[in-house]
Design a protein around this nucleic acid. Structure first.
Length: 417
RNA sequence: GGAUCUUUGGCUGAGUUGGUCGAAAGCACCGGUCUUGAAAACCGGCGAGGGUAACACCUCCCUGGGUUCGAAUCCCAGAGGGUCCA
């Protein structure tokens, strides 16, 4: 959630910045008005409540001294009606305000480039040179089937489209990758955490998936519970509603989880293969940081993911997302795109975001900064999406006969020497 | 699934014949005195959110309702935890 006090104080500026994200100025003006109306309603209610409290106190004294209370009671009863009315107005204002505020995206950083969509993202750098082949490289689904690693049909049989099953070396490679990734992240100071893959509504509101993106989530019928779309949700919300000590920060965490996405708006895209699945493994990084250190940590997290790809010998590039491609909660995002020879293109394999205090404000995560409490900054990033890493390995390490080499760093994890 | 107990501030833990309780006490923590320095001792401070120039004031004792002029304290429902039964 954006800072409403800031909006009130500095409307021009905030409005200008959010315009880059396509937020209508009229909507912001409405939000600002609602905020002011709420303040009035609150003051109103509190004044009445204060009177009520004072009279109640008096009441006690009267009774103890055996005085007549009928006149006082009449006044108190009258006030009670007013309080109920005032409270109702306040509630209504609160609700109206939240409805708007919760649906407004984060303010992009000034250095985020303007743009419509992914075509306007700005490349930062390329790492490693894409391999050359003296044959036509195959796409991963062909290789996956040929090697018996992935069975797409039987995944559909068990669940529905966009589910798959890994067998044999495919299954082992998946497990090896998860372990490798967690170990790699641990060496960079990210402590391993194992978290629930089902979370409640409050958690998803905290990180910004709700209320706006309910359609992207799998919901448990009959309960206010959802399957997580990313470990960012449980990891970040771990400290929801807490006031952390300054010396505890930064909290650098990593976790492996399955991720579940409805992919409601993705009909027709990436229907073949395992680029866009409803369920996939991912190793995630999350950091809870002090505001002044979040930029440095952002760079660390990008470097961690990039170096991991380098260790896996996978060519990739880094791009800064433009305003149009930036997610709802992010102030800034750098995507890592891995080279896929079969598709002859770079595809997203990791996304690292700084949400600044946007999620912290929603989730009420603060730290004690000397005397006062300050909202933390939260950052998240994949390191990495496991399925897509397998895709990248298959396509980059394929031989002419369709067999696949295994990157050296994974050998210890697969009992190869 | 049934019975019963329980849920208080960073922690431990008083407070359940409703009013003077935002809440005793201890620990932890912070500041000071003392000390070459530290410890001990002593003095002071010390929950959160909103609000204010600062006060005042409002809200919060698991959550949501209710009773009452007034609830941490009473009633109902729910959630978490313990114990017993199944």
């Amino acid at each position: 959630m954006i800072d409403l006090k800031q909006l009130q104080k500095d409307f021009e500026n905030i409005s200008k910045k959010l315009k880059r994200k396509g937020v209508d100025e009229a909507l912001l003006a409405e939000l600002k008005a609602k905020f002011e109306e709420l303040k009035v309603a609150k003051t109103n209610f509190e004044t009445l409540q204060a009177a009520q409290n004072a009279m109640s106190k008096e009441f006690g004294i009267y009774k103890r001294e055996g005085k007549d209370i009928s006149e006082l009671k009449a006044r108190v009863d009258e006030n009670k009606v007013k309080i109920a009315e005032a409270l109702e107005i306040q509630r209504q204002k609160q609700e109206e305000l939240e409805k708007i505020a919760m649906a407004i995206p984060n303010i992009p950083d000034d250095d985020v480039p303007d743009g419509e969509d992914e075509d306007d993202n700005v490349e930062i750098k390329r790492v490693l040179t894409p391999p050359t082949f003296d044959f036509t490289p195959k796409e991963h689904w062909e290789l996956a089937e040929q090697n018996g690693w992935i069975d797409f049909e039987r995944g559909v049989k068990l669940a529905t489209s966009r589910f798959s099953v890994a067998f044999g070396m495919g299954a082992k490679l998946e497990r090896a990758l998860i372990n490798f990734m967690l170990d790699f992240n641990a060496k960079r100071g990210f402590g391993e955490v194992s978290v629930p893959e089902i979370v409640n509504r409050r958690a998803l509101e905290g990180t910004g998936q709700l209320p706006k993106f309910e359609d992207d989530l799998y919901k448990i019928e009959g309960a206010e519970l959802y399957l997580i779309p990313t470990a960012e949700v449980p990891l970040t919300n771990l400290y929801q509603d807490e006031i952390l000590k300054a010396e505890e920060l930064p909290k650098k965490m990593t976790a492996h989880t399955s991720c579940f996405r409805e992919e409601a708006g993705a009909a027709g895209r990436d229907t073949r293969g395992m680029i866009r699945q409803h369920q996939f493994h991912k190793v995630e990084l999350v950091t809870i940081a002090k505001p002044e250190e979040s930029d440095a940590i952002f760079d660390e997290m990008v470097a961690c993911a990039s170096d991991m790809l380098t260790a896996l010998e996978l060519p990739h590039r880094l791009v800064t997302l433009c305003t149009g491609d930036l997610g709802f909660s992010a102030a800034k995002t750098v995507d890592l795109e891995v080279w896929l020879p079969g598709q002859n293109t770079y595809r997203e394999i990791s996304s690292v975001s700084n949400t600044r205090d946007f999620q912290a404000r929603r989730a009420k995560i603060r730290y004690k900064d000397g005397k006062k409490n300050t909202l933390v900054h939260t950052l998240n990033g994949s390191s990495l999406a496991v399925g897509r890493t397998m895709v990248a390995i298959m396509e980059n390490f394929q031989k002419e006969d369709g067999t696949i080499e295994i990157p050296k760093v994974l050998h210890p994890y697969l009992g190869m020497s």
